[in-house]
């Protein structure tokens, strides 16, 4: 990593709670961290607590009760064109073909058809889906669907890409393949990525930096910087050591 790191996104004292069955349940408690330009940041946490909430707050889908997110120097209010999201539950639009799904953000931005087709095609090629442009999502496998989701998020050319457990619903084999893919794509199209997962191995395989969250309510428990070269060998002693260290420090998911 470069020695001087430029802060691109800043979370300051984020808190969020919900009313569940007539009682207040706190999901996120006093979370602050920085995100640096072009890094692959993994937010790792057990169970269902807080991780997606944090991403929803960063993406602007929900607003925090307390605290503030800063993009560069300015406070973030609502959704922002510089931030894009790869959804946890695929969330492709089933009535659109692959290319129309990828071009969706460009179309909403009012970019002319020929131009957005060209851009969409570029990202379809990047995720390795050439030949499936005219397929509908229901015709694709889980891994292919998630590739479409990734291409769609990349196509609007954001500065920051949020990925909300994008491989959570894939089978183990596809998951490994997609982890390699996401690294390849990230190295090809350098962007800041914030990747949420509950899988320790995935976190160590992908992350330049890992922010470990506690169980409910989520707060930052530890931070790890991983210097190993990518792609990483998952049975390398150093890899296993880091994995064990994080694992020992992780709260049990309920």
């Amino acid at each position: 990593m470069a020695i001087e790191k430029e802060v691109i996104l800043q979370l300051k004292n984020i808190e969020q709670s919900y009313v569940v069955d007539n009682s207040v349940k706190q999901a996120v408690k006093d979370v602050s961290f920085n995100v640096y330009k072009n890094e692959f940041l993994v937010i790792l946490g057990p169970g269902h607590c807080g991780k997606s909430v944090l991403l929803n707050i960063i993406s602007g889908l929900e607003s925090a009760q307390k605290g503030q997110v800063y993009l560069g120097a300015e406070p973030l209010a609502g959704v922002d064109r510089r931030i894009s999201l790869v959804f946890q539950r695929l969330a492709l639009l089933p009535w659109m073909t692959v290319i129309d799904n990828v071009a969706f953000g460009l179309r909403m931005a009012g970019i002319a058809k020929a131009e957005r087709r060209k851009i969409a095609q570029k990202y379809i090629n990047l995720v390795g889906l050439q030949g499936f442009e005219k397929s509908y999502p229901s015709q694709l496998s889980g891994g292919m669907k998630q590739r479409v989701g990734i291409a769609r998020a990349y196509a609007v050319n954001p500065e920051i890409l949020l990925m909300d457990e994008p491989f959570g619903q894939l089978d183990a084999q596809t998951r490994y393949a997609m982890q390699e893919e996401i690294l390849r794509i990230w190295q090809q199209e350098k962007k800041t990525v914030i990747f949420v997962t509950n899988n320790i191995e995935e976190a160590v395989y992908l992350g330049d930096r890992i922010i470990l969250l506690s169980s409910c309510p989520a707060h930052v428990k530890a931070e790890y910087e991983i210097q190993m070269e990518k792609p990483r060998n998952t049975v390398d002693p150093e890899f296993l050591r880091i994995r064990k260290e994080i694992s020992d420090n992780t709260d049990l998911a309920l």
Partner: peptide, 16 residues
């Protein structure tokens, strides 16, 4: 809601 969230993330206006 998920589809509407997709719209929100990609800046669809009310008509879109």
């Amino acid at each position: 809601q998920l589809y509407l969230d997709v719209g929100t993330i990609f800046h669809a206006n009310r008509r879109q």
